[in-house]
């Protein structure tokens, strides 16, 4: 019921093309797009390119979340780390991450490595900032309680500071998830030999617009689905919050 407007949009799309209000060269009909999508699915193009994108996206994002969270907590915990890394984070945060595309290609070539590095670098900072703020807001009394119950200084980071920072890390990671789609598809569009972004570019240049639209729709759906899945996971993981 909530998604009724989407259904409406689909109907309008089909109607304006069928009625000839919009040229088929600019917008293929939804039914043609669906047919082209089905062909891509049957012939395996979706699967090979989708697998390449999934691998790059999840590897880059996993690195960004783990290393980003560790960096943020270390910054919050050790003043020296903050002094060293803090200014870098501040300076790099507003940089448009797509500017790194040619740089990572120069370093690691056209394959998976450059995409993973790009997503890692581009998605790390929101997680780092979340972890930093979350760890800074950790109550002193919680840390002291753990210490007086026998936890070592380092153990407290894992037992108390990390879980206390988790809600903020989760917010940062959600931003990172959205960013990873942007970076993945745009880097594959520009320089790649596989991936969903590559497939969009390849079909577009070949003039196969119905198939191109099919891939664009799939990417949009995957982004939506990933965000939904992520929220479900976090609701479960952060169930302890009031």
């Amino acid at each position: 019921m909530k998604y009724l407007p989407l259904l409406l949009l689909a109907l309008i799309w089909e109607a304006v093309v069928q009625l000839g209000l919009v040229s088929r060269d600019l917008l293929p009909s939804l039914s043609d797009v669906a047919k082209a999508g089905w062909t891509l699915l049957r012939e395996g193009d979706f699967w090979t390119n989708g697998a390449a994108s999934l691998y790059r996206g999840s590897a880059g994002l996993a690195l960004a979340i783990v290393i980003g969270a560790l960096a943020g907590i270390a910054m919050a915990w050790w003043r020296a780390v903050d002094a060293l890394v803090g200014p870098l984070v501040e300076a790099l945060y507003p940089m448009p991450k797509s500017a790194l595309i040619p740089v990572t290609v120069l370093w690691l070539g056209f394959g998976d490595g450059s995409k993973i590095l790009l997503i890692f670098l581009g998605c790390m900072l929101p997680v780092t900032l979340g972890a930093y703020n979350g760890a800074r807001s950790c109550e002193q009394a919680l840390v002291w309680s753990a210490r007086s119950l026998g936890a070592s200084r380092l153990r407290v980071l894992w037992d108390v500071v990390l879980p206390a920072a988790l809600p903020e890390i989760a917010n940062g990671a959600r931003t990172a998830l959205a960013l990873s789609f942007v970076l993945l598809v745009s880097s594959e569009l520009i320089v790649a030999r596989a991936g969903l972004g590559y497939l969009i570019g390849f079909l577009g240049e070949g003039g196969v617009y119905d198939a191109m639209f099919a891939v664009v729709l799939v990417v949009a759906f995957l982004g939506f689905f990933a965000d939904r899945l992520y929220q479900r996971l976090m609701d479960r993981l952060l169930a302890w919050r009031a």
Partner: peptide, 20 residues
């Protein structure tokens, strides 16, 4: 020399671990 389990502490605002 630092905190230890010989001295148990109870704080005004409970300081329970909210995730446990």
């Amino acid at each position: 020399a630092g905190p230890g389990p010989d001295r148990g502490v109870v704080f005004q605002h409970f300081a329970l671990f909210p995730w446990r």
